[in-house]
Design a protein around this nucleic acid. Structure first.
Length: 268
DNA sequence: TACAATGTTTTAAG
DNA sequence: CCTTAAAACATTGT
């Protein structure tokens, strides 16, 4: 589920826990989400500390606790945050539970592609510095997009949009939404895009990111009505703009949906 | 049964 | 060393 806006929304599930002490920590030690850290260290580190602040960047989440403790989370493919009752019984896929007075803050991830990081230091963790500009920020410039498309000129544009070091937070459905709006075929080579298409890619990336954040990011649920999102998940959909039957095929290893009349592949 | 699922990392090859 | 493509990871639902 989680791309840019879903991550922003999910992080709010723990908002009620801000300013409250963590009384107990439970970790599902066998879960692959702990592949980078010792869950025992995390457990001892967070017990007794206060949850102070949360941030997101792309698909990454960072939680700051008292005592110079930091928790990093990535939701992977099936991860999500939940706020449960204080008496919440530990579930099968509850990888991490922070138990507070009034509630239990849960990180649940059945498929375990998510990730838990822990850091203890006055300064933010090393994995939270030197992050690329958010795609909805002023620093995400046309010039930056052009240089990325040039550096990855032989790769398919679909694959390039999925690279988190350049387009943090953009995931599979957002790429399809962006390319559909920009009228770019997903299997086009990044270096083959005309200057006009490069600009369209930049502009629609910002549009989709901001649009998703102001809808999905605020209230959860779905993006606006006329978006490709609503028709991209199964075969038989029609383009909301042209009415053409949409195509669904694997491009760059991911299921991809596009409109063959709006998004044409330049013949080589 | 077999395949696909809103993601990253590792491995291999060029 | 850089770039690109494919496999791997683990579970659930259709």
């Amino acid at each position: 589920m989680p791309e840019l806006a879903e991550v922003a929304f999910a992080s709010k599930s723990w908002a009620n826990g801000m300013g409250h002490k963590v009384l107990q920590v439970e970790t599902l030690n066998a879960s692959r989400v702990f592949r980078d850290i010792d869950p025992g260290l995390l457990k001892r580190g967070l017990r007794g500390s206060d949850l102070l602040e949360s941030k997101t960047h792309g698909k990454k989440m960072l939680f700051r606790f008292s005592g110079n403790r930091w928790l990093g989370l990535h939701l992977g493919m099936t991860g999500w945050l939940h706020r449960e009752d204080a008496e919440h019984p530990t579930g099968k896929h509850d990888a991490l539970i922070l138990r507070q007075d009034e509630q239990a803050l849960v990180f649940r991830d059945p498929r375990q592609f998510g990730r838990v990081l822990y850091h203890r230091d006055k300064e933010p963790p090393p994995w939270w510095i030197d992050l690329p500009p958010e795609v909805h920020s002023r620093e995400f410039t046309l010039q930056l997009v052009r240089s990325v498309l040039h550096r990855r000129k032989r790769a398919l544009v679909k694959a390039v949009l999925l690279m988190q070091e350049f387009f943090p937070g953009i995931g599979n459905w957002m790429v399809d939404e962006i390319l559909w709006r920009a009228r770019i075929h997903p299997a086009e080579r990044a270096g083959d895009l005309s200057p006009a298409k490069q600009r369209a890619l930049w502009k629609e990336t910002k549009f989709v990111a901001k649009g998703a954040l102001s809808t999905v990011g605020k209230r959860g649920g779905d993006p606006p009505r006329k978006w490709l999102f609503h028709v991209r998940w199964k075969n038989g959909g029609k383009c909301p703009l042209s009415g053409t039957a949409l195509l669904r095929e694997t491009v760059a290893g991911r299921t991809t949906c596009w409109c063959p009349s709006r998004q044409r592949l330049k013949k080589s």
